[in-house]
Amino acid sequence: DETGKFLVLALYDYQEKSPREVTAKKGDILTLLNSTNKDWWKVEVNGRQGFVPAAYVKFL
C-alpha cells in the first residue's frame, strides 16, 4: 500500500559506499521513507532500504 508515501526519481546512478546506503540507477523510481536530512534521504528500492544523496533524486 503506497498511501501516504512519496515517490522520487533517481536523476543519476548512485553506487552505495556503505551498508547504510543503497544503489540506485538513473531513472529508478524510489519510495521516499524520510527526507528530514537535507543531504541524505532514506529510500526503498528493490526491497532494500537505505540512504541516497538528496541531490541525486527529485520528487515525481
Rank of each mutant, 00 (worst) to 15 (best):
residue 33 L to G: 02
residue 17 K to A: 10
residue 49 Q to C: 11
residue 9 L to R: 06
residue 15 Q to V: 15
residue 1 D to C: 15
residue 30 L to H: 01
residue 2 E to I: 14
residue 24 A to L: 15
residue 45 V to P: 00
residue 43 V to R: 00
residue 55 A to V: 09
residue 19 P to C: 12
residue 26 K to W: 07
residue 36 T to Q: 11
residue 56 Y to W: 08
residue 3 T to Y: 13
residue 54 A to S: 13
residue 44 E to K: 03
residue 30 L to Y: 06
residue 54 A to N: 02
residue 27 G to D: 04
residue 44 E to S: 08
residue 1 D to I: 14
residue 50 G to D: 01
residue 9 L to A: 03
residue 22 V to F: 10
residue 41 W to C: 06
residue 30 L to Q: 02
residue 35 S to P: 07
residue 51 F to S: 00
residue 40 W to Y: 05
residue 11 L to F: 06
residue 49 Q to N: 05
residue 37 N to T: 05
residue 43 V to E: 00
residue 49 Q to S: 10
residue 57 V to A: 00
residue 19 P to A: 10
residue 17 K to E: 06
residue 27 G to M: 03
residue 40 W to S: 00
residue 36 T to A: 11
residue 47 G to N: 05
residue 48 R to F: 07
residue 48 R to A: 06
residue 19 P to G: 08
residue 56 Y to M: 15
residue 23 T to Q: 03
residue 24 A to E: 03
residue 42 K to P: 01
residue 10 A to Y: 07
residue 43 V to Q: 00
residue 12 Y to C: 15
residue 25 K to V: 08
residue 30 L to V: 03
residue 57 V to N: 00
residue 2 E to M: 14
residue 60 L to F: 09
residue 55 A to K: 14
residue 47 G to Y: 04
residue 53 P to K: 07
residue 59 F to H: 09
residue 46 N to S: 07
residue 11 L to M: 10
residue 39 D to I: 13
residue 32 L to K: 01
residue 2 E to N: 14
residue 24 A to P: 02
residue 29 I to Q: 03
residue 16 E to A: 15
residue 38 K to R: 10
residue 47 G to Q: 03
residue 56 Y to V: 15
residue 36 T to M: 10
residue 41 W to R: 00
residue 14 Y to N: 01
residue 48 R to L: 08
residue 15 Q to K: 11
residue 15 Q to Y: 15
residue 24 A to V: 15
residue 25 K to E: 05
residue 27 G to K: 04
residue 13 D to K: 03
residue 19 P to M: 09
residue 34 N to I: 11
residue 17 K to G: 07
residue 55 A to F: 10
residue 43 V to L: 03
residue 3 T to S: 13
residue 37 N to S: 09
residue 33 L to V: 09
residue 35 S to F: 12
residue 37 N to R: 07
residue 45 V to K: 06
residue 54 A to T: 05
residue 35 S to V: 09
residue 10 A to M: 15
residue 25 K to N: 08
residue 51 F to M: 06
residue 11 L to S: 02
residue 29 I to E: 01
residue 51 F to N: 02
residue 54 A to C: 10
